[in-house]
C-alpha cells in the first residue's frame, strides 16, 4: 500500500477504500497539518482545519484533475483556503498579514538535507531558495497567506507597483525553474 503513488491512494480514498484512505491520510497529514498550523498559528484550530481539508478533498474528489497538478498540491490548496477562511472568520486576518512564517523551509541552506520531505517538495524548496529574498517573501505572502499585493505593500511599506513586479517575476522564475525539475504528473 505504501508503494502506491499519492494519486493511486487518493483514488482509493475517494472510492471509500478504508485501507487506502488510512494510508492516504497518514502520508499527507504532516503536510496538511503543518500548512494549517503555519497559517492559523493555533494547534487546536489547525487540527480542525486539517480535518476539514481532508473531508472536503473526499467530498469534492470529482473535481481533482491530475493533469493540472499533483494531488498533494491540490489538497494543500484546499487546506490553505480552509485555513484562510478560519482566520478571517475569527477576525484575526490582521495577525498574519505581512508575517511570513519563520520556519518556511525555503530558508534552509541545503533543502536536500531537510528530513522527512519527499523529492518533489525538496525540489520546490531548492527552487524557492534560489529566488531573490524579496521576490520569495512577496510570493509566499500571496500564495501561502492569501494576501493581495496591496496588503503586502501596506504592511511592508514597499510601493504597490514594486510588490506586483516582485510577485510576477518570482512566479515566472519559479515556473521556469520548476519546469525542468519537478516531476509533473
Amino acid at each position: 500500500m505504501w508503494d502506491l503513488s499519492d494519486e493511486a491512494l487518493f483514488a482509493g480514498y475517494a472510492a471509500g477504500d478504508d485501507q487506502a484512505a488510512a494510508a492516504f491520510v497518514r502520508r499527507l497529514e504532516r503536510k496538511v497539518y503543518g500548512l494549517a498550523l503555519a497559517i492559523v498559528r493555533d494547534p487546536a484550530d489547525a487540527h480542525d482545519v486539517a480535518q476539514e481539508a481532508f473531508v472536503r478533498a473526499w467530498r469534492f474528489a470529482a473535481s481533482f484533475d491530475e493533469r493540472r497538478g499533483s494531488v498533494a498540491a491540490w489538497l494543500l490548496g484546499i487546506t490553505r483556503n480552509v485555513a484562510l477562511d478560519s482566520v478571517r472568520g475569527r477576525g484575526r486576518r490582521g495577525d498574519i498579514v505581512g508575517d511570513v512564517p519563520g520556519e518556511w523551509p525555503a530558508d534552509v541552506d541545503d533543502p536536500s538535507e531537510v528530513v522527512g520531505v519527499r523529492d518533489d517538495a525538496a525540489q520546490v524548496m531548492a527552487v524557492m531558495a534560489g529566488l531573490p529574498p524579496e521576490q520569495r517573501d512577496a510570493l509566499v505572502a500571496v500564495t501561502l497567506l492569501g494576501l493581495s499585493t496591496r496588503e503586502v505593500s501596506e504592511r511592508s511599506a514597499v510601493p504597490h507597483g514594486t510588490v506586483k513586479t516582485r510577485v510576477r517575476l518570482g512566479l515566472r522564475k519559479l515556473r521556469s525553474e520548476m519546469e525542468g525539475q519537478v516531476r509533473w504528473p
Partner: peptide
Amino acid sequence: ELLLAAPE
C-alpha cells in the same frame, strides 16, 4: 506546487 514546500 509552491505549497509543497510549506512547513510540516
